[in-house]
Structures are given as C-alpha cells and as structure tokens.
Amino acid sequence: MTIDLRGIGDAVRTAATGRGQTVAAFARQALVAATGPNALAMEQLDVPASPSRSVAKLHLRMDEREAQVLIFKARALGLSYGEYVGHLVTGTPLPAPVAQRDADRRALRQSCDQLAALAGDINALIRLLRLAQGAEAARQFGDRMRGLEADVRRHIDLASRLVADPEDIR
C-alpha cells in the first residue's frame, strides 16, 4: 500500500524518528488508533501450523541497549536471537540458563556416581549377610545405610527436574 502524505512527509518522518519508529510502524499505529480498540482484535495471524517448522528471516529495529540485552540473554540461555524472540512472542517458557543446565548435569553425574557407590555397598552388605559372617560387619555399613533414602530422594528430585522438559536438556 502507498500513502500520499501530501506535503507532510517530513513531519511524519520526524515524528516517527522522535518515537524511535519507522514511518511504516508510525503509520500503522496511527491507523490502529483511528480505527479503534477493536482493530487489533480483528487482526488474524495467517501462518499455517507446520510440523516442519520452516524458518523466516525477520529484521528488527530496536534501541541499541535493548539489542545488547537481547544478545546477552539469548547467549546466557544458549539460544539464537531468533529462538529467544520466538520464545517470548509465543509465550513458550525459556530454558534454564546454560550455566545452570551445566551445573545441574554435573550435580546429576555426581549423584549417579554416589548412587553407584551406594549400590555397591548394599551388594557388599547383602553378601556379608548371606555369608552369615554376622552382625559386626553389617554394623560397619550402618551409618551409610541410614542416609540411603535421603540420597535416593535427592537424586530422583534432581534427575526428575532435568528430564521433565526435553527442551531444557541441551
């Protein structure tokens, strides 16, 4: 669409620039205001849902400080700028920051190692009891066995949090 500004082009460009907008965005805002509050409600997004998730290129104009914040936040989450903006636009939850996901994976590995050692101790205890070499050897494992339930619960809570959302594990 072309709009004949009939001599007010300079004033429109100055007003748009003053608001940090393009002339097209400024004109659209004026048209929405003139149409009334129901104008945006009538607007429909005509993009078919596609399982192939085709990619469209989009250029944004924004304040330099806002652009720097966008770059910083996208990098902290391990997302591209487009993925980050896409999450914000669709209201999709953002993944945990990369550093947090890495820390969670390290904690999960450590927890798995501890559970593996604990399983070995349990097997050793079972062998001792089977050999009937008695109560003294079994008591040596007592302190480690008392914390078994708590250790397992901590591990399961951590593992559950990491695997609950496949998007969160990268």
Rank of each mutant, 00 (worst) to 15 (best):
I71H: 13
L77K: 05
G78P: 07
R127K: 15
A39K: 11
I71L: 03
A27S: 11
T35K: 10
Q44M: 12
T35S: 12
G91I: 04
T92D: 15
G82A: 11
S80L: 08
P48G: 13
Y84N: 02
L88G: 09
D46P: 02
L131F: 01
A27H: 03
T90I: 03
D113Q: 14
L88N: 05
A135H: 15
D121F: 02
R101T: 04
E66V: 13
S80P: 00
A76G: 02
F72Q: 14
G78I: 11
A34N: 07
R106A: 15
A132F: 05
R106N: 12
A56M: 03
L40Q: 14
G120A: 03
L94G: 08
V85L: 15
A132Q: 15
G142R: 13
A137V: 00
A99S: 15
G91N: 06
T90F: 09
G147S: 12
A138N: 04
G134P: 07
R146I: 11
R61G: 09
L131Q: 06
V69D: 12
D102P: 00
R101D: 04
I122H: 04
A116L: 14
Q100S: 11
R53W: 09
E66Y: 11
A33H: 13
L131E: 07
D113N: 13
A39T: 09
K73I: 05
Q44K: 14
G91E: 07
R130F: 02
L58Y: 12
V47S: 08
Q114Y: 01
E43A: 13
A124E: 12
R75K: 12
R75H: 08
Q140F: 12
R53L: 12
L115M: 14
L88R: 12
A117Y: 09
Q114F: 00
A135D: 15
E64T: 03
D63N: 13
V98E: 03
A30Y: 06
H87Q: 00
D113I: 04
R127Y: 06
A119Y: 06
F141R: 03
L60Y: 02
A41C: 06
V89F: 03
V32P: 00
G142Y: 10
G147K: 10
A138K: 02
S111G: 13
R109F: 08
M42C: 04
R106D: 14
A34Q: 10
I122N: 00
V55T: 13
D46L: 13
L40W: 07
A103D: 15
Q100G: 10
A107N: 09
P48W: 01
